[in-house]
Amino acid sequence: MKPELKRRLKSKEAVLFLIFVVIFVFMSILSPTRFLSLYNLQSMAYQLPEFGILALSMMIVIITGGINLSVTYTATLAMIIGGFAMSHMFAGGSSAGLSVLVGIILMLAGSLACGAFNGYVIAYIGVTPMLATLGAMTFFEGISLQVTRGGAISGFPIEFIKIGNTAVLGIPVPMIIFLFVLATVYLFLERSRMGATLYMIGSNPKVTRYSGINVRKNLFITYLIASLLAGIAGILMASRYNSAKESYGSSYLLQAVSAAVLGGTSIAGGEGKVIGTVIAVLIIQVISSGLNIIGLNRYLTNVVMGLILIVVLTINFLTREKQFRNN
């Protein structure tokens, strides 16, 4: 057992967790009264789930060798479609319960439609994921704007708003949803047969196809699932902000890619652990909240986020070079 323990302690995830602890302690020392305040810890606990779910969504796609640049606009288009129906039904006299139910179902359905669109273009037409989702990003944004006319949709029943803003037994509901999603994604990617298939597709789609696996179908479903996660993140955002707008969460795109890469997911596909992504999400969340608390301009936070991505990829490159040279 001992060498096993040693190996684990030396693993990427352990190092990553150590980095998280160091940053957390650092932030606490920097601003003990505010960073460690109950208010801040709670607000992090409410913010982290939507970001975490988007990062997991991005990770699943990257593992197959793709990328989803439309992930945040999938979330917002979904929330706008569902939110539009929900607020109209509610305003039109439908019961809150029914409006919320229909709203949520439509949000999930909307995200699935976005996923089907991306999945079809990527898996069946064969457009590279980067360009397909780049186009889709603008396309979804356009449709969202078409519905909202540039404004925000509001007027949701209080029951819907509660999802993102209440706690059960002291645990915020979004956090409960996140933990549920996290467990599901872990089981899906690292324990299920489809997850195993996705890693193989990301490593070598040709061999996987030659092994009798329907690569296209698997890729299509991947985009469906990833978009469904984006839809869930959309529900949390809409509920937390008490409105739906196309630009919500747009800074999460870069952070989601960063979280996946920082967490050890290979940008080329085929490698990556759910736990790594989760720790990276924690790190990024702590950094962004911490910078916010010490009063760093929010635009500069974006600069830091961009730098994190570049630095992590640079380090990955350098370690790869070193390994290559050592061989």
């Binding site: 600069v303 986020m305 991505l309 570049i310």
Partner: peptide, 8 residues
Amino acid sequence: GTMSVILG
């Protein structure tokens, strides 16, 4: 990445 850095 550079987009985020420069725009920020």
